[in-house]
């Protein structure tokens, strides 16, 4: 089954999806899944990076300071960046997902060594949130309280993603956790999904594992949510600071997303999507293909797109 959604931009930027949650809740792993590669360092302890704003473009990385100046950095140096001087890191990759949205990988909350002041101002720029919560300790008071603080500044298309779902030992446990979360977060998220991120990344071309990991349902929903948002876009979050109506900022970018669902009965035998093997590693979520009719207006948007410092 293939559904096609044609888009007309109603806003002058792509939807900006922030990955939020407590530290070590799987945000970075999720960004790896969405990017189809792992550009950022990963640790079992808290990853202490400034927010990482990932957009479509030829691979490059820049440290953006509070006054808006940018400096090219290499990914190897990224751990040495001064947290207080760097407002965020701008990262360009060519992942399909980035053709329809920007991803902002936020620092984890509840990290004693990472002050909220380092990243909270950036929340004003985001449109919606994927909130990651670890299945075995899901949705604690620190998360609930933080979400109450910030959810109002989003456009409401937020997803609660229960990660490390495979850590729960059986179906009964999984059902109970989901049931509790549904009740406790009622009205706070557009949808709740569960996922086993490592399983999803390792799924490769095996659609049944991909589906079993929870990635299929989540990604499908996420993409259609993003595309529909840009399409309807009644309200797109905080006021943009872009000059209104300038010709350069209204370059038309049109995307077509295909959400492919293989027939489950034959999926085991099928080697899908040989057409679209392009340039990414095997971990890329192949079930989502986004075709860009017109390229994004510039490979590197000017810094004003993210605030005036």
């Amino acid at each position: 089954m293939t559904s096609q959604i044609a888009l007309e931009p109603q806003q002058d930027h792509k939807p900006r999806v922030a990955l939020l949650g407590e530290f070590s809740s799987g945000k970075s792993t999720l960004s790896n899944l969405l990017l189809g590669e792992a550009p950022l360092p990963m640790k079992v302890t808290a990853t202490r990076l400034p927010p990482v704003w990932i957009s479509y473009g030829e691979p490059a990385a820049y440290a953006v300071s509070h006054d808006g100046t940018e400096r090219e950095v290499t990914l190897d140096d990224i751990n040495d960046l001064c947290l207080t001087d760097t407002r965020f890191i701008r990262l360009y990759r060519t992942a399909d997902t980035l053709q329809v949205c920007d991803l902002i990988d936020m620092p984890g909350i509840s990290d004693p060594n990472m002050s909220v002041e380092n990243w909270q101002p950036l929340l004003a720029e985001i449109d919606c949130v994927i909130w990651c919560t670890h299945a075995t300790q899901a949705w604690r008071q620190s998360e609930a309280a933080m979400w109450d603080e910030i959810s109002a500044s989003t456009n409401g298309n937020n997803i609660l993603l229960v990660t490390q779902f495979d850590k729960l030992k059986n179906e009964f446990e999984r059902a109970r956790v989901m049931k509790r979360l549904k009740i406790e977060t009622k009205g706070k998220f557009e949808e709740i999904f569960s996922i086993s991120l490592l399983q999803a990344i390792e799924a490769g071309d095996d659609f049944s594992i991909w589906e079993k990991s929870g990635a299929a349902g989540f990604i499908d929903h996420l993409i259609s949510l993003i595309l529909n948002t840009s399409h309807d876009a009644p309200q797109t979050g905080p006021e943009s600071q872009e000059p209104v109506g300038g010709a350069s900022s209204s370059v038309i970018v049109e995307h077509v997303a295909e959400v492919v669902q293989d027939d489950p009965s034959i999926s085991d035998m099928q080697i899908p999507d040989e057409l679209d093997q392009a340039d990414v590693g095997y971990v890329r979520p192949r079930r989502v293909r986004i075709k860009t009719k017109i390229r994004p207006r510039t490979p590197r948007p000017p810094s004003r797109a993210v605030g005036n410092g």
């Binding site: 530290f23 079992v44 990290d111 075995t136 300790q137």
Partner: peptide, 12 residues
């Protein structure tokens, strides 16, 4: 503490 997320602000 939980090994997967050791020492949060709440633990502190």
């Amino acid at each position: 503490l939980s090994a997967s997320q050791a020492l949060t602000t709440v633990d502190m």
